[in-house]
Structure formats: structure tokens, C-alpha cells
Amino acid sequence: MPTPLRSRGFIAAALLPALIVFILFAIVPILWSVYYGFFQWKGMGQPKFIGFGNYSAMLQDPVFWRALKNNLILVVSAIAGQIPIALVGALLLTANGWFNRLIRSALFMPMVLSTVVIGMIWGYIYNSQFGLLNEALSLLGLESWTRAWLSDPKINMYAVSIPINWSNIGPYLIIFIAALQNISSEIHDAAAIDGASGWRKLRSVTLPMVWSTVVVTLVLCIAGSLKAFDHVIVMTGGGPAKSTELLATYMYNNTFAVYRYGYGSAVSTMIIVISLLLIALNLLVTRRKNG
């Protein structure tokens, strides 16, 4: 009895510094932010208490809804893009040959680049006058397909989502490869004895074995897409005319460009609420699948 107790005390003591730092720099600011969300405040002078005024203003602001819609576009594109591509990549690249390793590194590469660099590279690719994409299309004789990718409000959100997905495939690929390598060889042997191979084996053996990993990556995808900020701020800054505004850029612009500190705080509180809701929904859906 004394030993586990003592070690439990030791664990608690060892965790304490990290816990204090976390509470001080993550939890306390969240609470402050929630608190300021109830004020009308320019960042200086006396804050004025307005209750839920910021929240009702937010719900009536079409830009907020557009930002939310854009974030949901990112969530959908991440779930439909990042996870399947990473999974297929992992299935094809589990073996350890030099070619596989090369492709694996190539897929992981964007993860290592700074997001600002990625934003600038894709900004140049999408440039309508000398961008790589339009040049390539004209070379193929597809001039009619060329356009101002980041300016046209009908397509720029999709254009922006491609580099975000591209740069996020790497970590999921690694997670899936690890999961696939964790399937013990006995199971593969058993499948072989039962005569399962190819497609059948993939569907009935491999995928069910990594399904729990897929569920985890779903949560990561949702969280990652809701906090998206840096690629967009570099490529478009949320514009033109708010057409690529995300919740995070909306919060940033309101706080630091328009000096509505109280409103910005309310938006960041809203982001927390929305991500909690989405993650709860995700847990609900996946629990049903497990059952």
C-alpha cells in the first residue's frame, strides 16, 4: 500500500509545475476571454457591460455565418480529403523499400515547411498573371479554365482548402502506417489460410483492425480544421470582401483590426462552443458505429 500511494504523491508533485503553467496560460485566459465577451470594449478605456449583446450581434452578422460555413467547408474537405488519401497512401506504402520511403518523405514534406512558406508558395501557384496553375492550364490548351483562383469568391474557398489539406496529410499518413504495422502477422496468416486476399482482405480484415485509429484521426481533423488560420491569413487575409473569412480570422480581424476586444473575446468563446459541439457529435456518431 505505501509504495503506490507514495508514487501517486510523487506523480502528483511531478505534474504540478506543468499543471500550474497550463492553468495559468491556458485555462485562466479562456476564463478571462469568456468574461470580456460580455463587455463592449475598445481595448482601452472603461469596458461597458452588455450581457449577451456581443453574442446576439454575432448571430446577426452575415460575416460570422459565412466564416462558420467556410470552416465547415474545411472540415468536410479535410474528412473527405486528408483521411482517405492518407489511408490509401499508408496501404500502398507500408513496405520499406527505397521507393516507398522516398514517396513517404515526399508526402510528409509539407508538414515540415512553415505554414507561412506554404501559403506564399501556393499564393504564387494560384497567381492569375504568372501563376504555375494558370500557366500549366494554358500549356494544355485549357485557357478557358484559367482564372483568378484566390479572387473569385465562387471558388476561392475551395482553392484555399487544397493547400491546407495537402500540408496536413503527412501526420495522418504516419499514424495510419503505424496502425497498419501494428496488425499482428498471425491475423494476416489466418486470413491467408481462410483464402482471403486483395480487396476482400482489405475490407474484412485490415480496415476493421485500423478503424479505431480512423476515429481518432476524425477528431484531429475536425479540431485542426476549426483552428485553421495561418494558411488563410497568408494567402488571402480572409478576403477579398470576407469571402475566405474563417472563425479564427474573423476573431483576429475584429480584435486587432477593428479594436472590438469584447466582441473578439465573444467570438473566441463561440469557437470553443462550436468545436465542443462538433466533437460531441463526432463521439456520438462513432459510438453508434462501435455499438
Binding site: 496560460f25 485566459p29 476573431m251 469557437i271 465542443l276
Partner: peptide, 17 residues
């Protein structure tokens, strides 16, 4: 989650610092 909240309160954190 932690990351989102971190981002969400970046303003306030910066302010505190």
C-alpha cells in the same frame, strides 16, 4: 481542443504576457 482554445484566446494570452 486544447489547440483550438489556445488559438481562441491567443489575444488574451498575449495581453496577459
Amino acid at each position: 481542443m486544447r489547440n483550438i482554445s489556445k488559438l481562441g484566446i491567443a489575444a488574451v494570452t498575449a495581453m496577459t504576457l
